[in-house]
């Protein structure tokens, strides 16, 4: 449960107040978050999930947000994706203030602009791979053909299989195909390799890289696996609901070079 913005917050650690504006403005900022906080009540426990986040994300970037469990990275991702709203602060998608948007507006925002990839794939079990992708292409404005999206993730030969007939990696690639089929402006991935073995994880990451490079889609991956950060343009690190570090990779690694 969300706690009202008037509830007293513990003091924000000083590092959280730094603004991350180091990046060169090669492209317009897609997201701009200011003083984001999020407070939950889980049962009888109050959780301070985000404490004063300041953040800018740009088109075409591949961003990895690192952090241990409970650091608030999923919450941040959910707010960016319009799945959740902040308790205080603002988050803007271009000129649209998501923190002021109604549920219906958030819904439309997700529908038009956001592609999600979840740790547990969230495929509809009663639909085949192709149908899971078509589910989204049906409601999108200028989608790829579902087959094309599956081809992009290298699953053309598996399109008539049901989720239960696919391996975890394949399911996750279907989920990626589903996410990108609508040609989203942002692709948000929550621990996309979390449930996968190394080799499969690498395949999935290659798929994400390919999409990012070919479609110029802002891609945000959250993970607690620091190795993945090596393939990112930019790496943000979170702890206890705050951003504590920002790094820019001078030379990005290709997913096949990654080892964990």
């Amino acid at each position: 449960m969300e706690v009202g913005s008037n509830s007293s917050l513990p003091a924000i650690p000083p590092f959280a107040k730094r603004r991350f504006t180091l990046s060169e403005k090669i492209s317009p900022s897609v997201f701009r978050a200011q003083q984001l906080t999020k407070v939950y009540r889980v049962g009888e426990v109050i959780v301070y999930a985000l404490r004063g986040i300041e953040l800018e994300l740009f088109a075409g970037e591949f961003v990895v947000i690192l952090g241990p469990s409970g650091s608030g990275k999923s919450t941040l991702l959910n707010i960016l994706g319009g799945l959740d709203t902040p308790s205080t602060g603002t988050v803007k998608y271009f000129d649209h203030d998501l923190s002021l948007a109604s549920p219906a507006e958030l819904n439309a925002f997700r529908r038009k602009h956001v592609g999600f990839v979840f740790q547990f794939y969230n495929l509809i079990p009663s639909l085949t791979a192709l149908e899971n992708v078509s589910l989204i292409t049906e409601i999108a404005d200028k989608p790829f053909a579902a087959e094309e999206a599956l081809a992009l993730v290298g699953l053309s030969h598996r399109q008539h299989h049901f989720p239960s007939q696919l391996s975890g990696g394949e399911q996750q690639r279907v989920a990626i195909a589903r996410a990108i089929a609508k040609r989203p402006d942002v692709l948000l991935c929550d621990e996309p390799t979390g449930a996968l073995d190394v080799q499969t994880g690498i395949t999935v990451l290659e798929t994400l890289k390919k999409v990012n490079e070919e479609q110029k889609t802002l891609t945000v991956v959250i993970t607690h696996n620091a190795t993945i950060a090596e393939m990112a343009d930019r790496v943000l690190t979170m702890r206890d609901g705050a951003l504590i570090k920002e790094e820019r990779n001078v030379s990005k690694k290709s997913p096949v070079e990654l080892k964990w």
Binding site: L83, N107, R110, R111, V114, F116, N122, I136, I139
Partner: peptide, 16 residues
């Protein structure tokens, strides 16, 4: 529940 939530996440409207 989880399927419904996923559909909502993908932008399906309440009415859909």
């Amino acid at each position: 529940r989880e399927q419904i939530a996923a559909l909502t996440a993908f932008g399906f409207t309440t009415w859909e």
